[in-house]
Simulated assay, not measured.
Amino acid sequence: MAYLELDRVAKQFGAQTVVDDFSLAVGKGEFVSFLGPSGCGKTTTLQMIAGFLDPSRGAIRLEGRDLTAVHPARRGLGIVFQSYALFPHMTAAENVAFGLEMRRVPRAERAERVRAALAMVGLAGYEERYPRRMSGGQQQRVALARALVIRPSVLLLDEPLSNLDAKLREGMQIELRQIQRTLGTTTILVTHDQNEAMSLSDRIVVMSQGRIEQIGTPQETYEQPASAFVSQFLGKTNDFAATIDRTNASARLVAGSWSAPAPAGFSGPVTISIRPERIGFGDAGLAAKIVTRIFQGNHWLFQCESECGPAIVIRQNDGQTQPAEGDAVRLAWRVDDMSLRAGGAA
C-alpha cells in the first residue's frame, strides 16, 4: 500500500479545470517533485494535499486514511512556503518552537527539539536572532527547521528556494537532500526549476495544463521523455522529423542524411528526440552548419542549422580544436542515446 496516495484527484474553479485526473502513489521516505510551468496545477495539487483546498473529486489518502475531511492542522504535515512566512517579532528559536507549542509539547522537550532542529540546518548559535537580521538563506533554514521539528508525516515544499540566488540555491539543494535522506521524511516539492527537480528527486511528476505528462526517475524523464512537452521542458533537446524506410530488406530509420537500423514497433513518420550532449561531430550523419559557437567554461555550445532544422550541440571542453562558426559539419548519434515518438516533429 502506498504511504501517500492521490486517486484521480481533480480541482475545478467554476468552469475551469485546474487539476484533472491526478493519480500518484508515493512511498514512505520518497522525495517526489511536481515539475511544470506556471499555471500547470502543481501548487494547487500541493494545496489539496495540505488541506488548504478541497478536491472537486477524487481522494487523498495517507497510510490508507482519507484526508478529505481532516483539517489542515490535524494532518500532521510540515510545510515550507516560497515566502518562508516567518513571524518577524519572534526569534529563530521562537519561530521553530511555534508548532510544538500549538501541540502542547512540554517545555523541556520543546527546547531540546528546537535546538536539535536548528543545529540540523546549520543554525546553531542563531537561536536569539530575529528574521530581519538574517539572510534569505538563513530564513529559509529557519522555515525548514520549523517544518521538520514537528516530525511531519509528509514534508511539503512550495518552491522554497526560488528567492535565493543561484549559488546559494545550489548549496541549499545539497543540504536539503542530505537532511531528507538522514531523516527519511516523505517529501513533496513543487518547482518550475528542472535542475532542482533532477538534483533532489527520487521521482519527478511532470505536469502540463493540469494533467500528468510523465512520472519517472530524473534519468528516465530526461533520457526517455514520454511526450514532446516533456522533451522540450526538461532541459534542452533536439527534435528531428524522421521516417521508417522499409523499401530495403532491413528497415531503416532516416532523418536527412543520417540513418540507422529502425527500432521495432514504429512505422511511418516519427520524431527523433536527442539531447545536445549526446550529439557528436563525425564524418557521416546529418548535414549541418555551425551558426553560433559559445564558450561556457567546461563546455562549448553550438547552435547549428541542419537539413532537418535548427539543432543545439553541447561538447565538453577537452582542449581539442572545436569547429568554428560557418563550418560545415555532420551530426551523428547512437540509436541508444535517442528516444523515438510516433508522428512528425512539432
Rank of each mutant, 00 (worst) to 15 (best):
residue 122 G to V: 08
residue 120 M to A: 13
residue 218 P to M: 04
residue 24 L to R: 02
residue 315 R to C: 13
residue 295 F to S: 08
residue 65 R to S: 06
residue 291 V to M: 15
residue 67 L to D: 03
residue 69 A to K: 05
residue 297 G to K: 03
residue 86 L to C: 11
residue 49 I to D: 06
residue 205 V to C: 05
residue 206 V to I: 09
residue 253 L to H: 05
residue 303 Q to C: 13
residue 210 G to K: 06
residue 17 T to C: 13
residue 40 C to R: 01
residue 305 E to D: 15
residue 189 L to M: 06
residue 119 A to D: 15
residue 162 S to W: 01
residue 292 T to Y: 03
residue 214 Q to M: 06
residue 54 D to C: 11
residue 291 V to D: 12
residue 78 G to L: 09
residue 345 A to F: 11
residue 232 Q to H: 10
residue 139 Q to I: 11
residue 120 M to W: 01
residue 159 E to P: 00
residue 64 G to Y: 00
residue 43 T to W: 03
residue 74 R to D: 13
residue 321 T to N: 05
residue 113 R to N: 10
residue 142 V to N: 06
residue 176 L to W: 01
residue 1 M to C: 08
residue 170 E to L: 08
residue 202 D to Q: 03
residue 339 S to I: 14
residue 321 T to H: 02
residue 76 G to N: 04
residue 92 A to Y: 04
residue 17 T to I: 15
residue 226 A to K: 04
residue 87 F to Q: 10
residue 255 A to V: 15
residue 321 T to I: 10
residue 106 P to K: 08
residue 16 Q to G: 12
residue 329 V to I: 15
residue 2 A to M: 07
residue 139 Q to A: 11
residue 329 V to S: 10
residue 316 Q to F: 09
residue 190 V to Y: 01
residue 184 G to E: 02
residue 295 F to M: 10
residue 111 A to S: 11
residue 180 Q to Y: 06
residue 114 V to M: 12
residue 95 N to Y: 11
residue 313 V to Q: 07
residue 329 V to C: 12
residue 322 Q to W: 11
residue 82 Q to S: 05
residue 16 Q to E: 14
residue 5 E to C: 09
residue 169 R to M: 05
residue 284 A to P: 00
residue 222 Y to D: 02
residue 167 K to Y: 02
residue 201 S to I: 05
residue 315 R to D: 11
residue 306 S to K: 12
residue 198 M to N: 01
residue 313 V to P: 02
residue 106 P to E: 00
residue 32 V to F: 03
residue 40 C to W: 00
residue 238 N to M: 15
residue 219 Q to Y: 03
residue 180 Q to T: 06
residue 327 D to G: 12
residue 24 L to Y: 05
residue 71 H to S: 08
residue 132 R to L: 15
residue 337 D to A: 15
residue 227 S to H: 01
residue 17 T to P: 05
residue 229 F to M: 12
residue 83 S to T: 12
residue 278 R to C: 15
residue 91 T to V: 14
residue 311 A to Y: 09
residue 253 L to I: 13
residue 115 R to K: 14
residue 254 V to N: 08
residue 189 L to H: 03
residue 313 V to H: 08
residue 332 A to W: 04
residue 200 L to K: 00
residue 169 R to A: 03
residue 282 G to N: 08
residue 269 P to K: 10
residue 304 C to N: 10
residue 37 P to L: 12
residue 50 A to S: 09
residue 13 F to N: 10
residue 275 R to L: 12
residue 120 M to N: 06
residue 83 S to Q: 11
residue 137 G to Y: 00
residue 237 T to M: 14
residue 323 P to S: 06
residue 208 S to I: 07
residue 93 A to P: 02
residue 170 E to M: 03
residue 262 A to P: 06
residue 99 G to F: 00
residue 262 A to I: 13
residue 69 A to S: 10
residue 215 I to L: 08
residue 144 L to H: 02
residue 22 F to R: 07
residue 23 S to A: 09
residue 320 Q to E: 11
residue 311 A to K: 04
residue 336 D to N: 07
residue 89 H to R: 14
residue 262 A to S: 11
residue 180 Q to S: 04
residue 31 F to W: 02
residue 34 F to W: 01
residue 225 P to G: 02
residue 310 P to C: 13
residue 219 Q to N: 02
residue 33 S to N: 01
residue 298 N to M: 14
residue 100 L to F: 05
residue 52 F to H: 06
residue 180 Q to D: 07
residue 225 P to T: 05
residue 77 L to Y: 01
residue 330 R to M: 15
residue 206 V to R: 04
residue 177 R to V: 08
residue 295 F to N: 07
residue 110 R to F: 08
residue 145 A to Q: 09
residue 237 T to N: 15
residue 42 K to G: 08
residue 16 Q to D: 13
